[in-house]
Amino acid sequence: MAAAEGGKIDPMHQFLIEPVMGSHWVVGGYDLSFTNSALWMVVTLVALWVFMLGGMKRELVPGRWQAAVEGFTGFVSGMLTSNIGPAGKRFVPYVFSLFMFILFANILGLLPFGVVPGVHPFTVTSHLTVTGVLAIISFSIVLIVGFGKHGFHFFSLFVPHGTPVLMIPLIFVVELMSFLVRPFSLGLRLFVAMTAGHILLKVLAAFVINGINMGPGYVAIVTLPSFLLMIGITLLELLVAAIQAYVFALLTSVYLNDAVNLH
């Protein structure tokens, strides 16, 4: 939560990483402290695990919870089969983990845990290191699958069918560039979307608080409109949280399709 010191609310404070217990664990020259970010990764993992436990009843006629879990697995495996084909079933465990981790992290970061004193929600996916690592994992899997399945023939991905011979070197370079940019666009998109949404919400929240501090007149013209806008943007951010998780998983499956089926 933003530290309101001297009436100044810093919308960036929510992204600050600090060790939970205040102690730094330095291992082999690397600071591996259990930070608030790591704490929320664990919270995401536990929440997701608990959610999935509800789907493990494995009844013939599912209850609501089991149906919800099966809805998510069916969604991911449907996305993979429609993008890659029957071979896409192999990637369900990875893409499901990816999609659900991002989705749960996004939504947990939006929930109003801040109303509990001492609890500071943290959005794991608003950090470039996290989204970047996820993007690099996806990209690595694409490379491993592509080269493992097709060998050097995988480079034909960069020469679309019907390219004139004269154009092949240029097209190859352009396609290679667009291929290499994929992990960056994948990681940056999620990071930027989450960061921007949370900054916007925090700025509006600062308007609400500062308007209340400045008197009843400001409440009417600043606080109330900002608060109404916040409600709308919170709903929008919930939508964005789901859409960004979907986009990340969808692009991963599209890239995997390139690796599995070439063009």
């Binding site: 600071d31 970010s37 664990v42 993992l45 794991v124 950090h127 290191t129 996290v130």
Partner: peptide
């Protein structure tokens, strides 16, 4: 923070 972030992400995401 990159080391801690990557370390804990790999642990949690790996477990996941």
């Amino acid at each position: 923070t990159y080391a801690s972030q990557i370390f804990w992400l790999l642990i949690t995401f790996g477990l996941l």
